[in-house]
Amino acid sequence: MHSFDFATPTSVSDAVAILAKEGSNARLLAGGTDLLIGMRVGRATPGLVVDAKQIPELKQYKLDGNGLQLGSAVTCRTLYEDSAVVDAYPALIESAELIGGMQTQGRASIGGNLCNAAPSGDSIPTLIVLGAEAVVIGPNGQRNLAVEDVCVAPGKTSLADNELLLTINIPAPAANSGACFQRFIPRNEMDIAIASVASSVVLSGDGSTFESARIALGAVGPTPIFAQGAGDLLAGKPVNEASIQEAADAAEAVATPINDMRGTIEQRKHLINVLTKRTLREAVARAKG
């Protein structure tokens, strides 16, 4: 690995000051499960690595009536070991439990998954369908942006070099709502998604009609894709297989996958269709409780 320096700021302001000074020469280190691997193969060569984990705000989370305010460096394992979070956000937990195995989950953060901006990042579709917001801070202060606006290209976010992700804020689940994340991998563990889908739905009180829905896709484009049209078309539709099929076809239509060693275009589009149906069915089941 190339040579670099290591900084351990203990407050947000210190971290912001370091980033302001170093700009693109600095990279934040959360769990390091992307960053260190990337540095080892020469994909990233920062001169300064800034540890995010000594900053209390980034290591905390708060679950209350407003939802989940998730410090960017909180690990996947911390999340799914909290039964209150598990109960409130089963789709988020599905993502967290899929990111690597136990060893990875003990270090990997949702914030790191988002900032790494991989098309296959397993938490990103879920965050999108849960309507999460990224809270970003930089020398000019704080700004909030929708999670679907964070990733702009493979490995690239809309954050400036001198900005960092403070928290991810996920609203409290609405009444009669449910969400689900599923990915397709060849093995049963330890793989990168060939395709993935997150779906969330809000149903009418009697569970017969979709009031709204959000669908997001992973690994089928340069970034995770918010399939807004596919979700929107469900609004007002009856909860049945025909509606679900229609949404799945719409989701498949916006997928723009490539052929690579992990899968083919045809296979990935087909999988988006299958996974959209499967996640919608499960989200509906969860909404109905």
């Binding site: 195995g101 093995r187 049963n188 563990e189 793989d191 992990r262």
Partner: peptide, 16 residues
């Protein structure tokens, strides 16, 4: 060779 890692060279895990 496009998959020279144990992520993409997929040997069975205990769960497989």
């Amino acid at each position: 060779l496009r998959n020279p890692t144990l992520l993409d060279y997929r040997m069975p895990t205990s769960l497989d």
